[in-house]
Design a protein around this nucleic acid. Sequence first.
DNA 1: TATCATTGCGTTAATATGACACAATGATAA
DNA 2: TTATCATTGTGTCATATTAACGCAATGATA
Lengths: 256, 256
Amino acid sequence: MNFESEITKHFNDGHEIYLRHLSVDCVIFGFHQNILKVLLLQAKYAGIWSLPGGFILKDEHMDEAAKRILKNRTGLDNIFMQQFHVFSQPSRSTKEINQQFLRNVGIEMKESWMFERFVTVGYSALVDFSEVKPMADIYSNASEWQDINALPEMMLDHREILDTALQQLQTNLNYHPIGYNLLPEKFTMPELQKLYETILNRKLDRRNFQRKIIATKVLKKLNEIKKGVAHKAPNYYKFDLKNYKKALKGGMGFEL
Amino acid sequence: MNFESEITKHFNDGHEIYLRHLSVDCVIFGFHQNILKVLLLQAKYAGIWSLPGGFILKDEHMDEAAKRILKNRTGLDNIFMQQFHVFSQPSRSTKEINQQFLRNVGIEMKESWMFERFVTVGYSALVDFSEVKPMADIYSNASEWQDINALPEMMLDHREILDTALQQLQTNLNYHPIGYNLLPEKFTMPELQKLYETILNRKLDRRNFQRKIIATKVLKKLNEIKKGVAHKAPNYYKFDLKNYKKALKGGMGFEL
DNA sequence: TATCATTGCGTTAATATGACACAATGATAA
DNA sequence: TTATCATTGTGTCATATTAACGCAATGATA
């Protein structure tokens, strides 16, 4: 099926397989070179950026829809995702955007379920930057990691959605461990601390941070030291998955 | 308009004014005689209980829909409500329940938007028990406060929705003040503590509780003592709304 | 071989927390 | 009229937690 007919079919008949008025938007966080990143898509023609999103199949749980979208945009499977907020301003419609898109493709259409109002559910995920292969969807010409501190202009209320996800991430940081999905298998204490500092957007005391993290027992110290670094070489750690998961449920028992 | 034609119209044409596949369910907490209560509706004919719920108008924000439903079931206005979770199991459909309901009313109907799958957004509210006038909707023959510890059987996944709201309430308790909507204008320290104990479902040390609550400065001690009580009469307090709201945003800075 | 930014491990003072003591109160019972 | 007693207001104290900071070890680089 060629591009044009695929688009036509989606706009004409999509409502036969998807729930109307409902969408999912994903805020996918990654961490690279001490910078927090978010995966965004650049719309064809318009060039504006958006969160990876999609629709819910008529017989699909919303969580599954979010995971399906994540898989399609990153190749990743089995990632923990969670809904964080519903966005339902009555004006949430991509009618103009979609109509302009269709004109650019060369399609004329008066009516479509895609022109109607959409209520969207925000989902967030923390993923391993190095394992992701960003893939665009048919409405986009690029899928890229963007720095959280230098975000491009975004479509609709997507910036608000992203900010809400980030805020929720900061709040959770005090009560749940983080990093298992964001860091490589083995990592150093300074790397873990940088992750926390990046998300919280403030400096933490190196020594106190280490003491508290160690106390949670979510880390396992490895008998291995990072090599080829200037100055004193830091030790490697990895997560103790059993305790990590326990802490995910029960909380950390401290504040940073 | 009589009952039968109102029902017929809703099932036949409701989708012209409401968004399909989407509903709102409200968990409305109250506090009375030291017991945490939830407002429930009893379905006509079936007799089973459900959360007060409703649908979203095509040009209405979901938050507004939740407030409209709250107003209709309690008479209350200007109450702080917040969404806490989306429930989207593909099997969430009231088809059988609704068909049985229609048969009982004496209506035959093959197709209706009300038979389709519904994704529902849970909203919670804390309200002043004494100000509520429970009102049933057209599908219910009663609207009543139910003890949180003696809940009747509930429709669909409404029990799960309620439990999720309660859990969220418990979690929030440590980080945000509570009571402004649940207690009368002036109240005593033991009353406030009972509220906390009820929600948390555990005993708290009387003296430590007072020390911590006072430290947050959300309370104003009144120059008035409760009268006509056996034993030593407790002092009255009221909330310092300015500091209360500050703590709502910034957190309490302690754990109980 | 000296320098120096960085890491690992430790100390201390201030603060917060949990557990408990005791006097004051005032309706109720003797 | 007086003693009783459950309950409230206030305070103490040992312990745990936190923030702030010291110092030696490391190892690439100058």
